[in-house]
Amino acid sequence: MRVRARGWLCLFLACGLAGWSCAAPADPPVWKAVPEVRDWLNGAEPQFEHLHLDLPLVSEEGMSVPLAIDVTSAMTPDDSIVAIRVFAAGNPQPEVLDLTLDPRLGRAVFETRIRLDESQTVLVLARHSDGRVFAAEQAVRVANSGCLARSEEAFDAPMGEPRVAVPDPFPADRGHGEVRSLILHPMETGFREGPDGEPLPRRIIEDFSVSLDGEIVLAARFHAAMSANPYLAFRLAPEQDGELVLRWLDETGEERSATRTVRVVD
């Protein structure tokens, strides 16, 4: 889908037409239909359990749809979720977000905001350390309202200073707390045309990582379907005081990082 930058209203109107037609029961399940999903599953059959999604049933603004993921897991070294994938099959590219998890997160619980080009089913898969894959999916009707259409978009804004909120202190005994992160970045998708009719070059943050005392506890790959100014909230269960470093790397090579002191209740 190529859209003129100033023609967002037209896109929104067109999206509204898709209506309810996305959820026809006769369609093959998304996990079978999308090649990128099949590749990642590599023969495994997902079990639709242990994973809870929270997404709006109807979104009036597809540019920023809140998504919450909660996978039931003790997150111990031999019983944990090791990877999560988010797919939006109705987007020009189905991949949205890849997460690689470490047990030190304490919980496999995330919140973010994603782009949905039209009404479609969002699929989330979670791989357990024993090889099982859990899944959940939900149809989202995108009825972009001209009333809510954004009138301006930043194109060339540089990557901004990151925002990070860390609980202070974290609870003791592997208790987990929520860490929230956000960075100002246009996340230009590469699917749009500028005012001169030329395609706007793609520019997204691809890699995000979180290290605790030098060891990576969360690694993420952001795709073009992450909303502008990508937001990611996750849990962390530090055992002792330490240092948390969050790092964002965009595909032009620009990098930002933020360091926060972690304190655990005595």
């Binding site: 509204g16 209506g19 309810w20 009707r141 001209g146 009333c147």
Partner: peptide, 20 residues
């Protein structure tokens, strides 16, 4: 002001014209 006109398209409400 902003305004819109809405009709049914494919059994869903669709904004067919609008102005701001």
């Amino acid at each position: 002001s902003i305004s819109g006109q809405y009709r049914l398209r494919d059994n869903a409400i669709a904004e067919v014209t609008g102005g701001i």
